[in-house]
Computed example of a mutant assay.
Amino acid sequence: MKTLVIVTHPSLETSLINKRWVEELKKYPEKYTVQELSKVYPDGNIDVEKEQKLVESHGNLVLQFPIYWFNCPPLLKKWLDDVFAYGWAYGSNGGDQLKNRKAALAVSAGIKKEDYSEEAKYRYTLEHLLSPFETTFLYCNADYRSFFAFYGTENAPSISEVDKSAQDYLTFVDNL
């Protein structure tokens, strides 16, 4: 089955990494469905039933976003709160729509990888900062497959670095 990629970026058109990743994914519509939340829901009013059906119609789920204040953009948090509802994503009466579904994250981080360590300025690894997403997927009995990251977007990466990351990203998604 195809992979659903939920992209949440408030200004994708000005993004370097996320925009390039989306361009690459869209070259293969037979493999990936790209759902750009900021484009589909500019007012933030999420059609929960539509989004749930979209998730149900795909095999794998990837959440793609830039790290904002060491978290996800607010629209993705709202999407998770609304779509991963009791009785659908979890719960004692049903709630198994994510059970065994492979799920992963794809994130772009402004700071360098070495800044994400216990000894560095910010004192936490990216793994640690993304652990609430992993825990959410585990709570919903999904098959969490880790994350793909591009570090250092603030350091003006070269076109070749960006292109390589796009290829590496597709490989990551294909190997879920």
Rank of each mutant, 00 (worst) to 15 (best):
K112H: 08
P10S: 11
S108D: 07
E119M: 10
F133C: 10
P132N: 02
K31D: 14
F147C: 07
R20Q: 14
L138V: 09
L54F: 02
V107I: 14
T136S: 13
L76H: 03
F137N: 06
L75N: 05
H9F: 11
L98W: 01
K27R: 15
K113T: 06
E23A: 13
R123C: 02
L61C: 06
A104I: 04
P157G: 06
P74E: 02
R145L: 00
F172M: 04
G91T: 08
Q167H: 09
S117A: 15
K102E: 10
G152R: 04
G110W: 06
E114S: 12
L170P: 05
E30C: 03
V40M: 12
K102Q: 13
D81A: 07
L61E: 03
V55T: 11
R123K: 15
L76R: 03
G87S: 11
K2Y: 03
L54H: 00
N93T: 11
E13Q: 14
F148H: 09
D168Y: 01
F133L: 15
I6C: 02
E36H: 11
D174I: 07
N100I: 03
K53S: 08
T135I: 15
K112G: 03
K53Q: 12
P66L: 08
Y169C: 03
Y139P: 00
K50N: 10
T136V: 12
H9W: 10
T3I: 10
P74K: 03
L76W: 04
K164Y: 06
P42H: 09
D174G: 10
W79G: 01
E23W: 05
F70K: 06
W88D: 05
T8V: 14
F172W: 14
S160M: 09
K99M: 09
V5K: 03
N175L: 09
D47A: 13
Q167S: 13
V5M: 07
N141V: 00
Y139L: 11
Y86S: 12
T171L: 13
G110K: 08
P74H: 03
F150N: 00
S92F: 11
N175C: 05
